[in-house]
């Protein structure tokens, strides 16, 4: 698949502090790409370099296969982690101004603002000052500002932080819808549930280094640790005995009506053996291998480094 954005060996240093150390990422066109990492790992620094707010000390950034240029900002939409608008300025005027700074002509800007305001049903806000809006309303305006110029690459830094559940859900749907339309989205986040839900690819950055990257499903398969979920009817004690004799460990269980399901820890790849033992002692209703959550992988990888 073609990559819309590639960074090659990007280094950045502030004084004596190295914030990015040979970062290389490949963002396939049309995907949702997650940038993960603890606070201060260097995610925002990387995003600022992609937005040409700062320049890398060395390394290269490619956009659509060629070196990133100043004019490319018109094709990039950016929602910074620290969000804000001019508080005293009227909503309509402000959105128009920011659209024009992105390079839209006056007429195009007007048309786009009207389309988006209609879509969100906020035409009546045009003449209100930003400070008169609630926080949720301001977030809607902020999102419109980000996508107004139909960017082919959308960069969202912690998009869900500070959004209330309703707006967060709206945002999620918008992100998915934009991907449908062919927009590539890079999002940096701490919210691991949203990573599993949204991201196709991720890079995990810790202490300025990229420590894990690739397709989300592949990573989760790779980090399988031999957890299985077994749902059965019958004598639980017999099952336990049979499994523990085979070196497995039951790590949790829950009752669901007449069925009981247990979580079993075994050596990775020994699913068939485990199932054979179970079948011999109880009636198996369902059996599946559990994929690790991104949250577990995140914590594991980050702790490995410490």
């Amino acid at each position: 698949m073609e990559n819309i954005l590639t960074t090659i060996d990007v280094d950045k240093q502030y004084g004596d502090t190295k914030v990015l150390d040979h970062i290389g990422i490949n963002v396939p066109r049309g995907s949702i790409y997650g940038l993960l990492g603890p606070n201060g790992a260097g995610k925002t620094s990387l995003i600022r370099i992609i937005n040409q707010i700062t320049a890398p000390d060395s390394g290269e950034v490619l956009f659509m296969g060629r070196r990133l240029q100043r004019d490319d900002i018109a094709q990039i939409g950016y929602l910074p982690e620290e969000r804000g608008l001019y508080r005293k300025m009227k909503v309509g005027e402000q959105v128009l101004y920011l659209a024009r700074l992105k390079g839209l002509s006056n007429a195009d800007a007007h048309q786009q603002v009207n389309t988006w305001f209609e879509k969100f049903g906020i035409q009546s806000w045009w003449n209100r000052k930003v400070e008169e809006l609630s926080k949720g309303m301001q977030q809607k305006v902020q999102f419109i500002v980000t996508v107004l110029h139909c960017p082919s690459l959308l960069i969202l830094d912690e998009p869900f932080s500070g959004f209330d559940p309703i707006n967060a859900d709206m945002l999620k749907n918008e992100i998915l819808q934009l991907r449908e339309q062919g927009t590539t989205i890079v999002l940096s986040t701490h919210n691991m549930a949203s990573v599993e839900e949204l991201c196709d690819y991720i890079s995990l950055i810790n202490r300025s280094r990229c420590i894990l990257q690739g397709e989300v499903t592949r990573i989760r398969h790779e980090y399988k640790s031999g957890e299985y979920e077994l749902c059965f009817e019958g004598d639980g004690a017999a099952l336990m005995e049979a499994l523990e004799a085979g070196g497995c460990r039951i790590t949790g269980h829950k009752q669901e009506k007449q069925n009981v399901s247990v979580t079993v820890h075994a050596t990775p790849g020994s699913g068939n053996d485990l199932l054979a033992k179970a079948i011999s002692s109880v009636k198996v209703v369902s059996f599946s291998e559990m994929l690790p959550s991104m949250n577990d992988i995140f914590i594991r990888k980050v702790n490995e480094q410490h």
Partner: peptide, 18 residues
């Protein structure tokens, strides 16, 4: 200071040079 404290500055400098 206003642009900085209202945090709008980062949106703007993703469109224009500082």
């Amino acid at each position: 200071i206003e642009e900085k404290t209202s945090r709008i500055v980062e949106v703007i400098i993703s469109s224009v040079k500082p």
